[in-house]
C-alpha cells in the first residue's frame, strides 16, 4: 500500500509541472493566481501522502496549516488585484 502512495505522489508532482506551465505562460495575473491556487491544493495532498509514506502523523497538522495559509494568500492576492490595496 505504501508504494501506491509513492506512485500517487510522483503523479501529483508531474501534474504540478503541468500547472507550472500555466503559471509561466498565463496571459494575466488572474490566470497565474488560479494555477498557483491549484498547485497549493496539490501540495497539501503531497504533504499528507509523504506523511503516510514515512509514517509521521505530524504531517497532517502541517497540511492543515498549509491549507489555511494557501487560502488566505489566494484571497489576499485576489483582493489586491481587484482593489489595488489589501487594507
Amino acid at each position: 500500500m505504501i508504494d501506491l502512495f509513492t506512485v500517487t505522489g510522483l503523479v501529483l508532482i508531474c501534474t504540478i509541472f503541468l500547472c507550472l506551465f500555466r503559471v509561466i505562460i498565463g496571459p494575466g495575473a488572474c490566470n497565474r493566481l488560479i494555477a498557483a491556487n491549484t498547485i497549493g491544493t496539490k501540495i497539501i495532498l503531497l504533504l499528507v501522502l509523504v506523511g503516510y509514506i514515512y509514517g509521521r502523523n505530524l504531517f497532517l497538522d502541517i497540511a492543515l496549516a498549509y491549507a489555511m495559509i494557501n487560502f488566505l494568500a489566494t484571497l489576499a492576492i485576489a483582493k489586491y488585484l481587484e482593489k489595488g490595496c489589501i487594507c
Partner: peptide, 20 residues
C-alpha cells in the same frame, strides 16, 4: 481537512474570478 478544502477551494476560485 476534507471539509475545510471543500469550503476553501470554491471560495478561492470565486474570489479570483470575481477579481477578473
Amino acid at each position: 481537512l476534507i471539509i475545510f478544502l471543500y469550503i476553501m477551494s470554491p471560495t478561492a476560485t470565486h474570489a479570483i474570478v470575481r477579481a477578473a
